[in-house]
């Protein structure tokens, strides 16, 4: 295993998957100094931290116009984090591990059976438009 390639990202190391790893070929960077990969990692960490802050701000804001502005900023900050993550994935600095299909099927079956516990029984099929939460009108 080439440990020199797998430093620096915060993702956990997954050991139990049998599927092939989803990953691009790693773009090589200089190992010693603060490199391009460190730059992206640093900015991604900042964006993640900002979304936490703006989430609290959006929830605590008093009037609607302030809440709307903060929600807008929160959304765009999430988008920025997403763009950085995708760019790092493109450069081969993130790898994903598929869950085993049998495990997914097991969980699906389990929560499908829990569905009978939901209080409102007249639900439509998932993703069908129609019943949605409507904000209070003034």
């Amino acid at each position: 295993m080439d440990y020199t390639r797998s430093y620096g990202s915060y993702q956990q190391r997954y050991t139990g998957s049998s599927g092939p790893t989803i990953k691009n070929p790693s773009t090589q960077v200089q190992q010693s100094q603060f490199n391009d990969r460190d730059c992206l990692n640093d900015m991604l960490a900042t964006e993640k931290w900002l979304t936490d802050g703006f989430n609290v701000f959006a929830r605590e804001a008093s009037h609607q116009s302030l809440h709307n502005d903060v929600m807008h900023i929160l959304n765009e900050t999430h988008q920025a984090a997403r763009d950085l993550f995708n760019l790092m994935f493109e450069k081969g600095w993130y790898s994903l591990h598929p869950e085993q299909p049998g495990q997914i099927a097991k969980e699906h079956q389990k929560f499908q059976s829990y569905e009978s516990q939901l209080p409102q029984q007249q639900r439509n099929t998932p993703y069908e438009t129609g019943v949605m939460y409507q904000p209070r009108q003034f």
Binding site: S62, H63, L66
Partner: peptide, 11 residues
């Protein structure tokens, strides 16, 4: 029916 467009100290 909702807070007016005023900045609170917390805001």
């Amino acid at each position: 029916n909702q807070p007016p467009r005023v900045l609170s100290t917390k805001d």
